[in-house]
Simulated assay, not measured.
Amino acid sequence: MKSKLSSLGGLVYSTEAGRMCPGCRQPVAQCTCGQKPVPTGDGIVRVSRETKGRGGKAVTLVKGVALDAAGLTALGKQLKAACGTGGTVKDGVIEIQGDHIERVMAALKAQGHTVKRAGG
């Protein structure tokens, strides 16, 4: 049984450390092999609004951007400046505080991304 589990590839996510590197099995922040997980997707950036788990406050979510962690952080900073609000980048998703779907979509289209509105 144990040999079957090890052939599956090992630990992918740890609640203590977050995402794990598939090569060296260390947290992505402390990766020693230099192999970073490559972002995957269909090339379409999806923008949606969510209020779950935030006390009724809305946030704009940007998913599917095929950039590395540094690129996502830079894009998040540009989008926050364009909306004049705060936000963060978590697990490959950019979160912008407030309902700014139209502004975010316009800013992403201006940068050449293919953008779709997701959700209701």
Rank of each mutant, 00 (worst) to 15 (best):
D99T: 06
I44W: 06
G53A: 02
R49T: 13
T40A: 14
A66P: 02
G55K: 08
G43D: 11
L67A: 09
D68P: 07
L75M: 05
G84L: 01
L61G: 06
G55D: 03
T85C: 01
K63E: 14
R54G: 00
G55V: 05
I96Q: 04
T85M: 07
D99R: 05
A66K: 13
E95M: 12
V89G: 02
D91M: 08
A70R: 11
Q78F: 06
A70I: 09
G71I: 10
G98P: 11
R46H: 11
T73D: 14
G98S: 11
K63D: 12
R46A: 10
T85I: 09
K77W: 00
A74F: 08
R49N: 11
G43Q: 09
R54T: 01
D99Y: 04
A69P: 10
V89M: 07
L79R: 03
G64H: 10
K77E: 09
G41K: 07
A70H: 06
K57Q: 15
V45R: 03
V89F: 05
Q78H: 13
G43Y: 06
R46D: 09
E95A: 12
G98Q: 10
I94L: 06
D68T: 06
K52E: 11
A74C: 06
A82G: 03
G84N: 02
A58R: 00
I96Y: 02
T85E: 07
D68K: 07
A81R: 13
K90W: 03
R46Y: 11
D42W: 12
K77Y: 01
T85S: 11
H100E: 04
R46L: 10
I96A: 00
G71S: 13
K52T: 08
G71Y: 12
S48R: 15
A69F: 09
G56Y: 00
T73C: 04
Q78P: 07
